[in-house]
Write a protein that binds this DNA or RNA. Structure first.
Lengths: 344, 344
DNA sequence: CTGAAAGCGCTTACAG
DNA sequence: CTGAAAGCGCTTACAG
């Protein structure tokens, strides 16, 4: 079916020279005469020759390809980060292969396996929420395929990491709710195996404590990072005898579920319940009332992760030391949390 | 850097047999003794051997990889369709390489070029809105790399195509607005080089005509398929001396921009202006009021496109005839278009 | 300045 | 039943 592509051999035949000469001429080797170079290059162009990257891969044991595993490409946070990775990768002559774990450990395992057999040159990954064991990433790295984490990083595995200051973002979001007069602030945390979930929870707890507010266990619940989880947890929280007057959600997807639930239940936002999310997805500002959220520089995170990975791939020596880059988050205040301050 | 993977040669050495024998044993060839097979397979497993796909690609001139070009992976319509493609591809032993054209013709051209040199086995594509010339796809197909279009198809190029019934979807959406008593219905069309835009426009026009409603040129404007375009066009339409009482947008992204603009301008939906979009993105139902929209089976479109493409790739012979599969769209009515019928 | 040879990891006619 | 050889498309020491 596939039409035979034109090869170096064919050019050599037509020009009555050896394959070696053609190869050298094409790579502009100094040992080839200008005369010959010209003839070779002219014919190559007229034949529309392009070297077979498969052959080069076999030779160099490199594919010029980066793997990237995210839980879900439909999540704008991840698709934007992927955009950042591609931006850097393309400019440095690499291609990107995108995998989705769908928050499944098994799927993530299969993806890393595929990456190993496909001889991808390196991996950028944001861990699935169901993953508790990071051995598959360790193995990949031991095989010589470097791994860089972003956002959902491994705390145990030594490697480059790119993340935002989740703790500070959560702290500020909570402090903001306190400053708007909220007295009973609930938190819907993400799955506990992800460090981002734990850091955000800690930020929430510390903000309350530092402001002399007692922690209530019943106001801290946990959910997958999706809308359905947010809706369920909101029902649960609002059903409490002692219901909260504010909810800080560990992600915008959760917050969107909360938003929907509160509307169904007839609460006014922010007057009855103030809410703040995390990630600042573009749709969040379209809700009514628009959602306050902690913004993350997703595109930059992708760029940075790609840069660190490519430097690792292209460095001859083993890395000096692994580094963790922490980007700053940024609280965006919108109507969903702008509770009127009651004057006295 | 990269640790040497274990090869067939290494297994042969350890077992004191030839590479040929190892290769045959691993592929369970009938000409190898059970005895030898067992030894080879046992060692291969203990060494964690996996065949180098690069070597196979070079041999077979096949990469077991599908290319897919979409304008933007962050658009949920496309990310869902990609999910459908992957679903089928994985189950048939293929991998997917995702490219984004970002609605740019130049980028799309570079992507097809990359696909050709990378020896991808086939391409699934939804055309960029800035593309007027489809020669790059024709060339790819002539080189023996089959192309299947979905959603944004080429009308001129012979190939398999998967799309929805845009005309009927638009017709029904418009008819629905008429049935809710709207008298002056505007349409924000997509870029005219895309057939989906033209078909949706035609559906709108025919619905009006068939119901004896005169067409007004000033009520038909055009926009890129994004939110900013929808906002701009909404401002333009509502500024008219003779302003519309309904807007049918060629996509949900456009409709979301309209929704936002109308809220800014102080119009009530649907009472002042009823709106309907196209695609039924999941966020559309979260808007207040929730957006009516024509739903497209995006996942199924991806699955179908992948199936058609893989059949093409794996068939020995040239395709019998190219087919166009038209899936049915489905109008979802929500509050944004449920204008109260005025009783008499 | 140019060519023959070996090799990347694998498969598969062709011999035996 | 097993092995030696050729070949997929390319690069690069090694000779000349």
């Amino acid at each position: 079916m596939r039409k035979a592509s034109i090869t170096i051999k064919e050019i050599a035949r037509q020009l009555n020279v050896s394959k070696s000469t053609v190869s050298r001429a094409l790579r502009d080797s100094p040992e080839i005469s200008e005369e010959t170079k010209k003839r070779v290059i002219a014919l190559a162009e007229s034949l529309n020759y392009s070297p077979n990257p498969i052959a080069l891969s076999l030779l160099r044991n490199r594919t010029q390809t980066l793997g990237i595993i995210v839980p879900d490409i439909a999540n704008p946070f991840f698709s934007t980060a992927i955009g950042g990775v591609e931006d850097i990768a393309y400019s440095r002559g690499y291609h990107t292969m995108i995998y989705q774990s769908h928050e499944s450990y098994e799927r993530e395992l299969a993806d890393t396996k595929h990456i190993a057999t496909r001889r991808v040159d390196g991996l950028i990954v944001s861990i699935s929420s169901q993953t508790e064991n990071h051995d598959h990433f360790v193995e990949l790295q031991e095989q010589g395929i470097p791994v860089v984490f972003f956002d959902r990083v491994s705390e145990t595995m030594p490697s480059h990491k790119v993340r935002v200051d989740d703790y500070k973002g959560a702290y500020e979001a909570t402090e903001h709710l306190i400053s708007r007069g909220c007295k009973s602030i609930a938190h819907i945390a993400g799955p506990a195996n992800l460090s981002i979930s734990r850091n955000r929870l800690k930020g929430y707890q510390d903000a309350l404590t530092h402001h002399g507010i007692e922690l209530h266990d019943e106001w801290v619940v946990s959910s997958e990072y999706n809308q359905a989880g947010g809706t369920e947890r909101a029902y649960q929280l609002m059903a409490l005898r002692n219901r909260p007057d504010a909810i800080f959600a560990a992600s915008d997807r959760i917050a969107i579920g909360v938003h929907w639930a509160l509307r169904q239940l007839g609460y006014r936002m922010p007057d009855d319940v103030a809410i703040v999310g995390f990630s600042d997805l573009s749709i969040s500002s379209l809700l009514d009332p628009p959602l306050s959220s902690v913004a993350q520089p997703s595109f930059e995170m992708g760029q940075l992760a790609a840069t660190l990975l490519l430097d690792l791939i292209e460095s001859k020596s083993t890395p000096v030391a692994f580094e963790t880059r922490v980007l700053t988050s940024n609280l965006i205040i919108r109507k969903s949390s702008m509770k009127e301050l009651v004057g006295d």
